[in-house]
């Protein structure tokens, strides 16, 4: 029993480390799109591991925490997708290191498909 609890604590520790990596990524990455990448992935796995770890320590909380994990898994990528799309639409520039941009090419060729009426 004690062993499982220590496993849970270690999982939580790893999760918090990933959250730290996300924060470092947010600081170091050159443009917003790369920041979204670092932010979304690392915080998602980080919080999932944290929740799972606490779930192992308190087995009677586990089901509720799994519900929360499912919600995070659905909502977090969607919110970062919406953010990235909005950032691209209002024209926040890509970093100078970017060497290919297919979306820009396609939108220049075919601009009418984008701005539809509500």
């Amino acid at each position: 029993m004690e062993f499982i609890k220590i496993c849970g604590a270690v999982l939580t520790l790893i999760g918090s480390l990933f959250i730290l990596f996300a924060a470092i990524g947010l600081l170091r990455m050159p443009d917003i799109y790369n920041r979204i990448q670092a932010g979304t992935k690392a915080t998602t796995l980080g919080s999932i591991l944290t929740l799972l770890g606490i779930g192992l320590i308190h087995p009677d909380w586990l089901l509720k925490l799994i519900l929360l994990i499912l919600f995070v898994l659905i909502s977090n990528p969607v919110s970062s997708h919406v953010l990235g799309r909005a950032a691209y639409f209002i024209g926040i520039p890509l970093s100078a290191k970017t060497h290919i941009d297919n979306l820009k090419q396609d939108r220049q060729e075919n601009p009418v498909t984008k701005e539809n009426e509500s």
Binding site: F18, F21, G25, R28, N34, Q37, L94, K97, T98, K104
Partner: peptide
């Protein structure tokens, strides 16, 4: 992502495909 973020040279070569 952890490797990319922590390595000092920041090895990225981004693009939209």
């Amino acid at each position: 992502i952890a490797w990319r973020v922590l390595s000092p040279s920041l090895p990225i070569k981004p693009g939209i495909i």
